[in-house]
Design a protein around this nucleic acid. Structure first.
Lengths: 133, 133
DNA sequence: CAGAATCCTTATCGATACTG
DNA sequence: CAGTATCGATAAGGATTCTG
């Protein structure tokens, strides 16, 4: 409660990706989550925001190869899903900080489990692909 | 060691998806794994195979909306990554069984963690998207 | 049964240029 | 600084037809 920021979500439609078709049944919630975070940049952003809050260009500089457009889209998606909070400080020039919500923080745990698995078995997977890929 | 099957991987190129560009750095192994299993059908297949072995058409019937083409591609990718094993029984008509490898089985654990998270927070996410989606 | 081949639609992503 | 707008390339996914 100390800042002068306006914690307003960026409701503007922009060109957000689909909110995940979710069409039909989708009996598997895991699939839905994976479709959300399984894209090219989302986890990278989550991991960075898991350490501390970041400003837009800070994220942009930290993640090599990430375009401005994709960073915006990624952040908007995360915001829409309630995983990331956006704080706008109406200064000149504007300053925007992104951080994880409690929901976003809670995702770090299962994500770490997957990270551990990935690190532990990366060699096995690449070996398998070496044989047949 | 009891069957008469030939446990031959289907090395035929077919029209497999990219083995994940993996181009450049890719400092994050989590991202790589998520790109592999984050597609539309992979986890569904893994979960089913986690219960028991399945035949091709058995999987096809079990997963509504999954086309033959995508099932083949999904299985080939999983096979290439060493997560799924393919056993061909040279009968007439042919019979092919798919099952998880030990590596595939080991993925079930972190996947379950993510599944639990997804189930626990599905309502929060849809609530967030209800507000802004 | 278990696929391969082909065609076509749509979604995803990146590059570039512009703005309050 | 923190975006938006537009465009083009490519990848993912689906439908259909055919085969050993």
């Amino acid at each position: 409660m100390s800042g002068t920021h306006t914690d307003v979500p960026s409701v503007v439609a922009a060109d957000l990706p689909r909110p995940v078709p979710a069409s039909e049944h989708d009996a598997c919630p895991v699939s839905e989550v994976l479709r959300r975070i399984g894209d090219k940049w989302t986890v990278l952003v989550i991991v960075l925001l898991g350490k501390r809050k970041h400003r837009f260009n800070e994220l942009h500089r930290s993640i090599e190869g990430l375009s401005q457009r994709m960073l915006t889209r990624t952040l908007r998606s995360l915001e829409r899903d309630g995983l990331v909070a956006r704080e706008v400080y109406p200064t000149i020039p504007p300053s925007v900080e992104y951080g994880l919500t409690p929901l976003g923080e809670s995702l770090l745990t299962p994500l770490s489990a997957l990270a551990d698995w990935a690190v532990a078995h990366a060699d096995e997977m690449s070996a398998a692909r070496g044989r047949a890929g």
